[in-house]
Design a protein around this nucleic acid. Structure first.
Lengths: 241, 241
DNA sequence: CGATGACTTCGGCGGGCGCCGAAGTGTCCG
DNA sequence: CGGACACTTCGGCGCCCGCCGAAGTCATCG
């Protein structure tokens, strides 16, 4: 509406509109939930956010129209997920900046506490590994000279070879950067993201190095995973606990 | 709603609050203006945004309280600037995502047109170089093997030596990454940012490779700058026009 | 010391937006 | 084919928030 009216500053208006999509607690809760990279139904998100289905439907309409989410209708369900990796990155980075102020809330119930520590131990962050697991992998990459972090954030040639010998295919076409630093909000340090991070995570789940636990995005390293990570990256099992 | 009630989801609330700081056209205009990295007075920003001084004063209060801006009082002036490089990065990344939809507006006046093309040619982006100038530098770094971009975004050892021989000191202490990719919103491609990008930009201005023009953040490459960039990085003068 | 100027505080106004429940549409299943 | 279910549309409500101008505070300057 009011399309005919030219705004004084279209660039600022666009920025404000985009930020406005995230500037609502209900929508923010949805975006954070969707950071697990999976598709949620409208109803699940409504329950998660604690609002009426009708309210959430309108929120989803805005997020989709704004390009942050993409939707897929299946029968009577409306599945929705983050539109792409850049949308996830945007939410991550905003969330990472928030954490220092709000991360101090203590868990109130045992259930909350164990869920929280499981998330801190290992989880997915959109399409790559995060938590202590993600950090351990990133640190191992760095220590073994596979990832150069002192002058930026890039795989080394040895790093490329590592993926090759591990049998993990890297898609190097496409616009998506091969690696990228993503700020971990429990560890407060960057971990491995980008196409390589996604490929590694995908492989880890497929090879059952780790499995999803609970309904959230927490993951647990299996015994086979401990062996593989120790063998391929020299990660001590203690670093994953 | 009941007052004093703790919010249901503090993480989402924090995210929404942070985004809310940017989700206002007037505040967004201020943040974009401040992307030049300089300190502005409250009055300048009020004039720039086209609102009353009282209105803008309240906006600045929120932005400072929210940690996006830092302020410095000098006499009867209130100088305000982006709080740090991460705040600038946040605004940049949001703005970069907006651009595709809104960048199509055509300039309406000659003044606007020349100002726009000067900005597209070269400008500062917080504390580093952007526009065609920034892209040319980044491309030259990549072509000469000083910057590795195929597997991420990091300086090579040759890149470190280049800074050394050029007499540009790099501060490698501190938490700030040495290099980082920043998405250029006129070129739609990443350019060199981070501590090294800032050092290079600082040196370029000090050595008068380029000078600020106009009141905005546009910069112009001098004759000496053309020679230096050609000599040190093999950049053809045509790439800067 | 009085005038000017930059900024802040306050009261009041208006619009936008998130919320809900009720009613409507489309899909699935027994 | 009818009922259950997931989602959407609509009307209405209430509050939040950005806006302004007037008045107040404080620094600077003649």
């Amino acid at each position: 509406m009011l399309e005919g009216m030219t705004t004084r500053n279209p660039r600022a208006a666009g920025l404000a509109r985009l930020a406005g999509l995230i500037a609502d607690e209900t929508r923010a809760a949805c975006l954070l939930a969707l950071l697990d990279g999976r598709a949620w139904t409208a109803g699940e998100l409504a329950r998660h956010a604690g609002v009426a289905a009708s309210t959430l439907s309108e929120h989803l309409g805005k997020l989709v129209a704004g390009g942050l989410l993409s939707e897929e209708r299946q029968g009577r369900h409306r599945y929705v997920r983050l539109a792409d990796a850049t949308a996830a990155q945007l939410v991550e980075e905003l969330a990472a900046r928030v954490a220092p102020g709000t991360a101090v809330r203590r868990p109130r119930t045992l259930r909350e506490s164990t869920a929280g520590s499981a998330m801190a131990r290992g989880r997915t962050c959109y399409d790559h590994l995060a938590g202590r697991l993600g950090i351990a992998v990133t640190d191992a990459f760095t220590a073994r000279g596979l990832l150069r972090r002192d002058t930026g954030f890039a795989l080394t040639d040895a790093g490329l070879r590592w993926f090759d010998t591990a049998g993990i295919a890297l898609d190097r076409r496409g616009r998506r950067p091969l690696v990228r630093a993503c700020l971990d909000w429990t560890e407060r340090r960057p971990h491995l993201a980008g196409a390589a991070g996604a490929a590694l995570c995908r492989h880890a789940l497929q090879a059952r190095w780790c499995v999803r636990i609970g309904s959230e995005r927490a993951v647990k390293v299996t015994d086979a995973g401990e062996r593989a990570l120790s063998e391929l990256l020299g990660i001590a099992a203690e670093a994953l606990r």
